[in-house]
């Protein structure tokens, strides 16, 4: 299990990130990106600290966090695998790839494996439409997915 930092610690680390980025015009998204990078997700305890610093309501911060697909409310697995499910990849069989991958990993989209090894997410376009079907594993791009590459991915996330 991932150990959750104590709320006071979250507050102090959040405050440091805010301090660094508060001078930007429209700083909220950069701050949230910074927090997610720091904690792996956006902890609830960070929200009142942001609200206070930017002089907006906690509800507004909550509204922004929940609007965007990228911000997580819980930590992801050790690896994050994003599988493209948009049209160009569909035309090259991404449905079958998704089904196979779900079976291999034993999880569905938006789920994390029980051992915390990997989180599987759909993504709607990685801009790799000329090498479909495509995926992104921890920020690394993979094109022309096939059974062999899926096996490699599964081996990597389980290692």
């Amino acid at each position: 299990m991932t150990m959750q930092p104590a709320s006071t610690e979250i507050a102090s680390r959040t405050a440091a990130i805010i301090q660094e980025l508060k001078g930007l015009e429209g700083p909220l998204l950069p701050i949230l990106h910074g927090i997610q990078e720091e904690f792996g997700h956006v902890p609830q305890d960070a929200l009142p600290v942001i609200a206070e610093a930017l002089n907006i309501s906690r509800a507004e911060v909550h509204g922004v966090v929940t609007f965007y697909h990228d911000y997580r409310s819980h930590p992801a697995g050790r690896h994050v695998l994003k599988l493209c499910q948009a049209e160009a990849c569909q035309s090259m069989g991404s449905d079958a790839i998704a089904a196979k991958l779900k079976q291999l990993l034993g999880i569905g989209f938006h789920e994390t494996a029980r051992d915390g090894s990997v989180t599987l997410e759909p993504v709607y376009c990685l801009g790799l439409c000329a090498c479909a079907p495509s995926a992104m594993l921890d920020g690394e791009v993979i094109g022309r997915l096939n059974d062999e590459k899926l096996d490699e991915i599964v081996a990597e996330v389980r290692s």
């Binding site: 160009a88 709607y124 376009c125 801009g127 790799l128 439409c129």
Partner: peptide
């Protein structure tokens, strides 16, 4: 914010 599937010119 080039989100359209099938496009990658901006990238």
């Amino acid at each position: 914010d080039e989100g359209d599937s099938g496009t990658f010119a901006d990238r």
